[in-house]
Amino acid sequence: MHWVYYLSNRFRLFLLGLLSITIISSCSEEHQSENEGTSKPNVIPEDVHSQQVLLGRYLFYDKALSIDSTVSCASCHQQQFGFADNVAMSLGHHRKKGTRNALALSNLKEHPYFLWDGAASGLEKQVLIPLNDSLEMNLDILDVAKRLSGNEFYQDLAERAYQRPLDPFVITRSITAFEHTFLSNQSRYDNYLNGDNNALNEEELLGMDLFFSDRLKCAECHSGSSFTDYSFQNNGAVTNYERDSGRIRLTFKESDRNLYKVPSLRNCEVSAPYMHDGSIATLEAVVEHYASGGQLIPQKSNKISGFELSLKEKSALISFLRTLTDDEFLTKEELSDPFEE
């Protein structure tokens, strides 16, 4: 006979009550941990835009936005890496591996569309994609809003900044407001453009000349202030497209097969590895790839035809790429994790 049989009814009730309290208490703890974000700043800014940015900053770094509360936007877009990741494929919820390399983020107001295939025409819409992606955060934005509905700090900030509760509109707008503050324009190259003739040394100037030369044609795609023309190209770096056929999945046009957006080169020194699949580990290897003319892929851009570089020139080109690093941007406190303050 089971030992419980020998207990008095009163004692059985007592045990049952104890068990219920334990269960309720553990559920409540779980809920609280999902609703982190209560590490409030000392001062809430007065102006509405700063409130929007502050709310977005907390949400960007809040792991409660993923289904198992292990991944935030910042998990794959880390400030120290130019808001990219240092692995080929970032890990999402339950350590699921993604299918594309996390793009570096900066000067996003200049970008006409987002993601490697240009799927998102606006940053506000882009916010939905990693949230919804089954390999990334896997939490529908309606569930995010529901999960955070009990967080007084978020609700208060949402009301102040948007005069409405924390809903999908507020979540997408505030994260966008924060991401729009990712301004990288204090690199040594920027300083040189702004008139500081001593900002670049001789080797870097040689590298700059090579970068913009007709011989290398880097700037045919990597042009403009963000070093991208936002076009979709195949650069012959990858031969296997079984898991990811690029922009064609959106347009169904055969001409878009295996094409990916030309990425910005700002802070490329710290945003390795490179390419849409993170298959090239270093800047040196990237230069060698372009010098070789890439692999024979039917869709490869005719702009990738290879070139010859001396060792000195190669070193100079890489040195120039490193002048695009904006140290202030990589360490700026206003962009950092507010939960660690």
């Binding site: 799927a119 998102a120 025409s121 606006g122 506000e124 819409k125 882009q126 939905l128 994609i129 949230l131 919804n132 992606d133 934005i141 309606l142 809903d167 999908p168 509109f169 979540i171 997408t172 959106l250």
Partner: peptide
């Protein structure tokens, strides 16, 4: 088709809440 679904009230036909938005394709 290029509308942003979170800008509509939840009962609006184009609202995100209707479950008709393809997030991956926006």
């Amino acid at each position: 088709n290029a509308s942003d679904p979170v800008t509509f009230e939840s009962a609006h036909p184009l609202s995100y809440n209707q479950g008709m938005y393809w997030v991956w394709a926006t």
